[in-house]
Design a binder for these strands. Structure first.
Length: 110
DNA sequence: CCGGTGACCCGAG
DNA sequence: GCTCGGGCCACCG
């Protein structure tokens, strides 16, 4: 069981229409303080044949993290989220108060 | 082995 | 809002 597997396991639990931040995923995976690792794990996901909803992970500011290396997958990410019913503000951000995933503490089992 | 880099985050000015 | 600085750690040359 690698650290990446833990991360993917968490990401798979994010429901449709909700999002989680990199730091939040790291925290739930027991990797507190290692948000960068989450970004790295998602970078290695194969976009086409993946069963992981990588698009539901955004940064703490409520934005999609853009990068030169992503070659447009960041733009693709936005369209996927919009297709799930998530609306963006005029400045291209997501309202975390409305869309942030809050896992039920009672149901939660690591 | 070592230094640079990065889909990150947080607190201070 | 902004920029800086520090912390984090796998990966790569």
């Amino acid at each position: 069981m690698s650290k990446y597997d833990l991360i993917y396991q968490i990401v798979r639990q994010i429901p449709i229409g909700k999002v989680a931040t990199y730091g939040q995923v790291a925290e739930l995976a027991g990797l507190g303080g290692q948000a960068r690792l989450v970004g790295y794990a998602l970078y290695r996901v194969d976009l086409r044949s993946s069963d992981i909803p990588w698009q539901r992970v955004i940064n703490a500011k409520g934005e999609i993290s853009e990068s030169l290396h992503r070659q447009g997958s960041d733009y693709f990410q936005r369209s996927l989220l919009e297709a799930e019913g998530i609306q963006f503000t005029p400045t291209g951000k997501i309202d975390l108060k409305q869309y942030l995933w809050r896992p039920d503490p009672t149901t939660w089992e690591p």
